[in-house]
Design a protein around this nucleic acid. Structure first.
Lengths: 337, 337
DNA sequence: CTGTTAGCGCTTTCAA
DNA sequence: TTGAAAGCGCTAACAG
């Protein structure tokens, strides 16, 4: 149905190779013939077949984006960043939700390899993937958010430790001394980094962490709620809570409301992520903003650079800063939004 | 580098076509040779090239997903539904953010056509796309959420009118008589349908709509906030507000808080969409849930059916019901979450 | 049941 | 400056 390069060649009275050269600007073509070719191509609405091109060029101009779940508010902005950068460079991106399941991850990796995607942006969940990737035949890979141990590839991460440290310091500066921490899931590097930031800030202030004030919330709303109930329901309740992500912070907010505690008067709360609705909550949530869009955008650009051969052979690691966004949930804050 | 079908053929001592037949289960192959081929293929880690296959079969097993912006909380679940259904059937999905810009939309359409995607799931923004699509050479297209006028294709939509009607009735049932409406952008079919539902419910109750109680909020948080200020700040303020989406409802919530009005005691608020955080707000937001995941999943399935030739020739239209989710923001509600 | 022969639509030497 | 020819990796007649 659609016109092929042969049709154009015939219409222009030249050979296929000439059409190819004229259209791609590769090799010499006389201005006159080039014009004829262009005219014929336009006239026939010729669109070179991407598939045929890929077959010969070995490049599909396609990127794979593996992330746990696009439905989690943390990921859409990253995806958007990746897509924008890719689109600008003429690349398409295939979306894959892994559900943090190594089997899914493995499965998609196989699929994407078979499709010969040129590169991968990977928000990895399983550590195993680090090694798989290493020996896998992907021209280029960039890890985002977390770097599996042993992964020899470019990466874009955020300074989680510093982010939480800043948030905790802010609370300390407000006069809080009994500050609790609601972490993610044990064994998560992200969670550990954030915990480390919390501990570091306490240490700086000469405070000893109270083991009873450190709880796991599994990065979920429900987990945060449960932790909040436990923390705020106890006799020696903290005056402030640092949650390792916004979802858990929102759970803490709810627990506080149910216990009749006012935020920020009775208890201050800070979250992490600055998800889109953080500023729309009541009270607006003080939180640590991750440059999610930029993470994705940056990752895609690094990938593209590497594909273009414009990258040093050794893996690069970009560490983006997190930013404290002060809103009302911890008191002194501005209005939010 | 990677093994090709020729390598397998050589290793198994048969011809390429035999390998192809053995691996694809097409045509006759003796059990003995099949075994040899399978062994050789496994041994060489042979993975048929998707690109080469596409070139001959004319099918890429790839779907395009066009939506305004994955960063808008309404879309990720749809995307996830599409991706899940596609993945189950061995299809990959290419994500495209159009920003509701006809030019972008047009651009992506061209890209996707050139890549010969087998089908399109389209959350269209511009009406123009309806016609473009009609004459475009995509084997199959399914519209989601809104159907551009003149579009001759399958579609999955939600009964917006009925959804808002139910929500408004709920408010009426609670005894409210002064009920305001915050709509989306003028000219949006979605917004008009929701307004129609609101008006219908009022009419049923024998109430005359007060023009001053109907405002546009542009589907944004800020728009909702502004509308909320205007509505709730006026002397004849309504006792309840129906917002055409959750973002605007949250804006109204904020306006209420700033004006010192308690929700739901002083003013009841209901939203539309049931975005992930609706139940986590304080108070939890009563809203109309759209079956977003199902919309995407259903759309992809319809697409796949059509590609498989298992669909009637005429366009199908699936209308999914919206569901009122009663939470605390309008009073009598349950707990939320 | 299996091998031979053609392409799919394009790029790319290599000659002319 | 252009054309002829080969080939990317696979599938699909068509013989045998």
């Amino acid at each position: 149905m659609a016109a092929t390069i042969r049709d154009v060649a015939r219409a222009a009275g030249v050979s296929q190779s000439t059409v190819s050269r004229a259209l791609n600007g590769s090799g010499y073509v006389s201005p006159a013939t080039r014009a004829r070719v262009l005219a014929a191509a336009a006239q026939l609405h010729f669109r070179p077949s991407h598939v045929a091109r890929s077959l010969v060029s070995k490049a599909t101009h396609t990127l794979g984006l593996l992330l746990p779940d696009i439905t989690n508010p943390f990921f859409p902005a990253i995806a958007r960043g990746v897509e924008d950068a890719a689109a600008r460079a003429g690349y398409a991106v295939i979306l894959c939700n892994t559900d943090r399941d190594p089997a899914h991850e493995e499965h998609y990796l196989a699929i994407l390899r078979q499709r010969q995607v040129d590169g991968l942006v990977l928000i990895a969940s399983s550590a195993a993937v680090g090694h798989r990737i290493a020996r896998a035949d992907f021209p280029a890979v960039v890890f985002v958010d977390r770097v599996p141990p042993g992964a020899e590839a470019d990466a874009v991460v955020v300074d989680n430790r510093e982010g939480v440290r800043t948030a905790t310091r802010h609370l300390l500066g407000l006069g809080h001394r009994r500050i609790a921490f609601v972490g993610g899931s044990a064994g998560s590097g992200t969670s550990e980094d954030r915990l480390a930031g919390y501990l570091a800030a306490l240490a700086e202030a000469g405070l000893n962490p109270d083991p009873g004030h450190i709880r796991a919330g599994d990065f979920t709303y429900d987990g945060g709620y449960a932790a909040g109930r436990a923390l705020l329901g106890s006799p020696d309740r903290p005056t402030a809570v640092v949650a390792a992500n916004d979802l858990m912070a929102i759970g803490v907010l709810r627990a506080a409301a149910e216990l009749g505690l006012r935020v920020p008067d009775d208890v201050a709360v800070v979250g992490y992520d600055d998800i889109p609705l953080a500023g729309m909550l009541n009270p607006p949530l003080t939180t640590v903003a991750q440059p999610t869009y930029e993470m994705g955008e940056r990752a895609a650009r690094m990938l593209l650079e590497r594909l273009a051969g414009k990258a040093p052979p050794e893996p690069r690691r970009v560490v983006l800063p997190a930013r404290l966004v002060v809103r009302r949930s911890c008191g002194a804050g501005r209005d939010g939004q």
